[in-house]
Design a protein around this nucleic acid. Sequence first.
DNA 1: TACCAGGAGAAAA
DNA 2: TTTTCTCATGGT
Length: 220
Amino acid sequence: MTAEQAAAVYARLLGAYGPQHWWPGETQFEVMVGAVLTQNTAWVNVERALAALTQRVALSARAILDLPLAELAAFLRPVGYFNVKAQRLRALCEAVEAAGGLPALERMETAALRHWLLAIHGVGPETADDILLYAFARPVFVVDAYTRRLFGRLGLIPPDEGYEAIRHRFEAALGPDTQRFNEYHALIVRHGKAICRPRPRCEGCGLRALCAAGDADRPT
DNA sequence: TACCAGGAGAAAA
DNA sequence: TTTTCTCATGGT
């Protein structure tokens, strides 16, 4: 994918949907919590769980750690995988507390912070990059299922390429630009929710004219 | 009824 | 090392 292609898709998406002003979280810590809870889950269900949780306790690492695990899981029922996510959220909170809180994390270099995040149980590459970009404003491109689907169909990334390779591809094409990474990923998700669905195949997708050769999964 | 939703980790091959 | 399975509720 060339810089021109990356810029062209971005311009199309921005023109179609306008600025998205992501992430839909009020505070730095809420963004971190939301990143874990939204794993393989629609955001509307994350909002339900967050509303239930914050009605009971303040949204802080300490307050969440003080909740019994079963009670925390009960609040997380709307997001699905609630037993798994209760453990993952607790692991995140433990790590934040052990690190000395958010100010200590803010002072870390991006590579070190990413390494720290990936060492937390339940934080994989996408969740780590969500947190880096949207909670810490670091220039890291987030690759998710929508990104793979759209750019695979456009023929701009190989269908079986790994997470890191795709991330580097975007970062090389766009240059380190936190604001653009933020908006670009939000627009990809918006497009994915609206049009670029798993099936039927992208009918009516406004980006079809950009489709290149070589992807069996792209629209016909 | 079947599929999908802003994944990740464990287990199996 | 790579692939498959499991976790699970809620909406369409």
